[in-house]
């Protein structure tokens, strides 16, 4: 590449990379730097005082700082795991229903499923908080018709987090179904026809053709689902406020509480850095796991 070409390449890349640097990298580097300081978010950066690893030690310590952080971290991990475990199989199942041509209604089902993704979270939160009402909520009333006793849903620390997960699955599954359908359309029909000639059942076709060839789609869906789940904030802020007994206090809500409400910017930054590192580890593991499976095959 000549010098002129190099300069031209840099010139063309500069606007995009510059924006990324300003709006993504600079805040990341700032957050990492602030995580080693004691700093009130209401004052200028010049007031931050270096405290070394003290903030991270507090996160692992026995005080309420550490206990609340670890509880929020665990809640986020459970929320993420449950969301991914429920959303991915459901999206594939619904994707197959939408994609099939044996029965009518596929496009209608796709529209209905995707519409839940388009509803603003504020509306979802308002409606679901009433649906979940333990004494007057329609869900418990419907369960009562089939002899199931009322459930506590958002009103108990045992069930509140799972209730938020179900709300998330309901809202997100349509989007992931569309991704699954996009993956299904990429699989050549000829493979299924050849399998039929060989006498493969529908079940065998699913396990031997559909699922392996959906691997890249599923990897992408899993990564997006993990990132979305880790960033959960609105339903917690709008419905449960992290309660009861911190059972729905997830990382983003907790960081907001510590970093903004209490203005403990250094501590909040340390939590954000820990969350970011954990997310990187999970994403790398996900790629490694699915890539290895592909190589084994």
């Amino acid at each position: 590449m000549t010098g002129r070409q190099t300069r031209s390449t840099i010139g063309m890349l500069a606007p995009a990379t510059g924006l990324i640097a300003i709006f993504v990298l600079v805040p990341m580097v700032l957050t990492i730097g602030l995580s080693f300081t004691q700093w009130s978010t209401q004052t200028g950066f010049e007031t931050a005082s270096f405290v070394g690893l003290a903030n991270f030690a507090d996160l692992l310590g026995p005080t309420s700082i550490g206990r609340d952080f670890r509880a929020a971290f665990a809640n986020t991990a459970i929320y993420t795991a449950l969301s991914v475990v429920l959303i991915l199989p459901l999206s594939v199942m619904l994707g197959l229903l939408v994609h099939q041509t044996f029965a009518p209604g596929g496009i209608l089902l796709r529209t209905v499923l995707f519409s839940s993704y388009m509803v603003p979270m504020i509306a979802v939160a308002l409606v679901w908080s009433k649906l979940y009402s333990p004494t007057e909520g329609p869900i418990n009333q419907m369960l009562g018709w089939v002899g199931i006793p009322p459930q506590t849903w958002l009103s108990s620390p045992r069930t509140a987090l799972v209730s938020i997960v179900l709300l998330n699955v309901w809202q997100q599954v349509g989007y992931f179904t569309v991704l699954a359908v996009a993956g299904l359309t990429q699989i050549p029909r000829s493979l299924y026809e050849a399998a039929l000639v060989d006498g493969a059942s529908a079940w065998m076709q699913f396990w031997r053709i559909t699922l392996p060839l959906l691997r890249n789609t599923l990897l992408f869906s899993a990564v997006i689902a993990v990132i979305n789940a880790v960033q959960v904030f609105e339903p917690v802020a709008l419905i449960t406020q992290g309660g009861p007994v911190n059972s729905t206090n997830v990382m983003t809500y907790h960081i907001r509480r510590v970093g903004i409400e209490r203005a403990q910017g250094g501590l909040g930054s340390a939590m954000a850095v820990t969350l970011m590192l954990s997310l990187i580890v999970v994403i790398v593991l996900l790629f490694t796991l699915l890539r290895d499976r592909g190589e084994q095959r």
Partner: peptide, 9 residues
């Protein structure tokens, strides 16, 4: 009954 005690935002 704590299950009857939840408040929202």
């Amino acid at each position: 009954d704590p299950a009857m005690a939840t408040a929202d935002a």
